[in-house]
Design a protein around this nucleic acid. Structure first.
Length: 525
RNA sequence: GCGCGUGUAGCACAAUGGCUAGUGCAUCGGCCUUCCAAGCCGAGGAUACGGGUUCGAUUCCCGUCACGCGCUCCA
């Protein structure tokens, strides 16, 4: 075993607490609705967080849409005709019947349990206070009640009459067969009775229009993907595309997660970056054309490389291919890109081969032909779809965690975000060495103004230079430019690099071009 | 949703059934300061929310909310 268990225990080098604290302290991410004690599963992005998150999205859009010649973008409405979700399967499949074992209070999906038939094993449990006649209770599968204390807990949960068991001795006798045969659902752990199944619909509902009844019910989309599928024909007919090509979309999605957890990793309102890449099923491919499985493999690599190119360390990324029994019935394959989060390896993005399931469903539910006319073969068919579906918030969190570093400078701890320049919220900070020298301040402000023409630059003179550097380090600013007394005479200033802390001096008038070159070289403009 | 735990300033932490709830960092103002969290002076800022016990509650109890861990969930 070991291997999987060991992997499960692996954790990122930095604790989540450190990241949460940094995010709050520096204005990246705050708990949602904080002044009203928050709202579970929601977070708000602050001044630096919105820059970072927008940069993540910009980098994705640029690499996946603008720099490719086989991709179009859309921005569909969050609210969609409810039949969309009947077609997609979310109305029926996103509805999980859950029930709890009354003994162990463990939760099960009712539709995953096998009904049990036949005689059940029971045990007699006698309880008695001092000098009283023993009272008998029955308890299923007592073998798994490992102690009298546990048995007592079970009895209390079953009988709901706590007073009955106070200050009583318990004795557990050997199991026997009950008289009555039993058919139905029992908990698989203790064989105990279950609560009535309750439905957990993971879609959030609201309503559209003046009347608030079932006829006006709409859902907040649980994924952006369906807005792509429902626009497949629109895009096809207006973009003169031929297979293979993709449609990309970023936007908010909502899921009523049972347990929001791990900071912004699992939240109820989140943002997705999804691609539906429409390609030819193998049987329709010309010689030399990539077939559907080859496109799936292509996208695995393309998506992994995107994270690597933006600076995530290779050892913190891996694929996790879904087992066959884990796959949805229509899916031909699915792999996740996993990242080593502080809570362990977890999913950043799923890359699924969805066959023609979605278009077929929408074709059936809408009655509108969704097929593609292949001009070479002169026939119509439904394309297959490869779906790389990434979480913006999860990605943003991974970029933060992976960039976080600590080192030591002159015996003092230095915390910094070694973040890709394309993602850094602030690209350059201009710092006057002395703020009580108006000439220096004036030059510094002028330089900052020049930088702002093409990037997010910031002027700061509210502390001594060492502190100003550390501030910028902690929020990942790649370049600091310091204007000093000498600048007044030689017209030069110092550029200091974040990770190495190396400095170089150059003429003030060359600095904007230099910064611009550096950012362009990093593909960060 | 269940179980266990936690909740004190922007962040990290301390203390107490009773006197003005402390400390560090951070923030703001002033003085000073020629390149890596310097110094001095000053300022603002907190017991999550609601109820109960009590002469008195941040402390004890109950509820709510949020967070953490486990279960569950993750189409």
């Amino acid at each position: 075993m070991g291997n999987q268990e060991q992997q499960a225990k692996e954790k990122a080098a930095v604790a989540m607490d450190v990241i949460v604290s940094l995010c709050k302290r520096r204005g990246f991410i705050f708990p949602g609705s904080e002044i009203y004690d928050g709202l579970a599963g929601t977070y708000d992005y602050g001044p630096l967080g919105v820059e970072l998150k927008n940069n993540v999205k910009r980098a994705w859009w640029k690499a996946m849409v603008q720099q490719r010649d086989d991709m179009e973008g859309v921005d569909a409405a969050i609210l969609m005709n409810p039949r969309t979700w009947e077609a997609s399967g979310h109305v029926s499949n996103f509805n999980d019947p859950m029930c709890d074992c009354k003994l162990s209070q463990k939760r099960y999906r009712a539709d995953h349990l096998e009904p049990v038939e036949g005689l059940q094993k029971w045990a007699l449990i006698e309880t008695a206070g001092e000098g009283e006649e023993p009272t008998q209770f029955i308890l299923p599968n007592p073998i798994l009640a490992r102690s009298k204390k546990e048995a007592k807990q079970f009895l209390q949960r079953l009988q709901e009459d706590v007073e009955t068991f106070k200050n009583r001795r318990l004795s557990v006798s050997a199991p026997s067969e009950s008289e009555e045969p039993f058919t139905g659902l029992r908990s698989p752990d203790y064989g105990g009775p279950l609560t009535e199944p309750r439905m957990f619909n993971l879609m959030l509902k609201t309503h559209c229009g003046p009347a608030e009844d079932s006829s006006t019910r709409v859902y907040l989309r649980p994924e952006t993907a369906q807005g792509i599928f429902t626009n497949f024909l629109n895009v096809l007919n207006t973009s003169r595309r031929k297979l293979p090509f993709g449609i990309a979309q970023m936007g908010k999605s909502f899921r009523n997660e049972i347990t929001p957890r791990n900071f912004i990793f699992r939240v109820r309102e989140f943002e997705q970056m999804e691609i539906e890449f429409f390609c030819k099923p193998e049987e329709y491919c010309q010689p030399g054309e990539r077939n559907d499985m080859e496109w799936w493999e292509y996208w695995l690599e393309a998506r992994m490389n995107w994270y690597l190119d933006l600076g995530i360390r290779k050892e913190n990324l891996k694929f996790r291919q879904h087992d066959d029994d884990e796959l949805a019935h229509y899916a031909k394959a699915c792999s996740d890109v996993n990242y080593l989060f502080p809570h362990g390896w977890d999913e950043l993005e799923g890359i699924a081969h969805r066959s023609d399931f979605d278009l077929k469903q929408h074709q059936e539910f809408s009655g509108k032909d969704q097929s593609y006319f292949d001009p070479m073969l002169e026939k119509r068919y439904l394309p297959f779809v490869i779906e790389p579906s990434a979480g913006v918030d999860r990605g943003t969190l991974a970029f933060l965690i992976d960039a976080y570093r600590e080192d030591e400078v002159k015996g003092q701890k230095r915390a910094y975000l070694s973040m890709h320049p394309a993602l850094a919220p602030i690209k350059a900070a201009v710092l006057p060495l002395l703020k009580n020298r108006p000439e220096i301040v004036e030059k510094a402000r002028a330089l900052c103004g020049e930088l702002k023409r093409f990037c997010n630059a910031r002027y700061d003179d509210t502390a001594a230079i060492g502190k100003l550097y550390r501030r910028q380090d902690e929020i990942g600013t790649p370049f600091c430019i310091t204007v000093d007394v000498e600048s007044l005479e030689d017209g030069q200033a110092t550029i200091r690099e974040r990770d190495t802390m190396e400095q170089q001096r150059m003429p003030l008038e060359n600095i904007p071009a230099y910064i611009r070159e550096q950012l362009a070289a990093a593909d960060a403009l």
